[in-house]
Amino acid sequence: MRVKQKCLSSFMEMKWKKVSRYVVYKIDEKTREVMVDKVGVVGEGYDGLAAALPADDCRYAVFNFDFLSCDNCQAIREA
C-alpha cells in the first residue's frame, strides 16, 4: 500500500499551520494508494467531519479539536 505525498503534506499543514480542521483519507482499490478525500476548512466542527464521511464506504480521518486542559487553558489536539 502506497501513501501519496499529499496525505502527509495535508496532515502537516493541518497540524502545524492550522489551515484546515480535518483531513479525510480513502484507499483507492485500483491503484492501492491512500489518498486525500476531503479537507475541512478551519471553521468547520465535528459535524462537518461527520457529514464528510460516506455512510456506505470506509474512510480514515484526523481532526483538530479544541478543549480546555486541566489548567483551564485552551488547547488543540489531533485525533
Rank of each mutant, 00 (worst) to 15 (best):
A52T: 03
D28P: 03
N64T: 12
G45F: 03
K4T: 10
C73H: 08
L68K: 14
V41N: 14
C73A: 07
R21V: 00
P54G: 01
A51I: 02
V24H: 03
F63E: 00
M1S: 15
A61N: 05
N72I: 04
K15Q: 08
R21P: 01
K26Q: 06
R32C: 15
K17L: 15
E13L: 11
R32K: 14
A79K: 09
A61S: 11
K6Q: 12
C70K: 11
A55M: 08
K15C: 10
D71L: 12
G40M: 05
V62W: 01
M1Y: 11
R77E: 13
Y25Q: 01
R2M: 07
Y22L: 05
D28S: 08
K30A: 15
K26I: 02
D56R: 08
M35T: 12
S9W: 09
G45T: 03
D66T: 11
L68N: 08
F65W: 07
A75K: 15
V39S: 01
N72P: 02
D71S: 13
D57P: 02
N64C: 14
K15Y: 05
V39W: 01
V23W: 00
F63K: 03
N72M: 06
D66E: 10
N64R: 13
I27F: 02
L68A: 12
Q5N: 12
K4E: 13
V3Q: 13
W16Q: 15
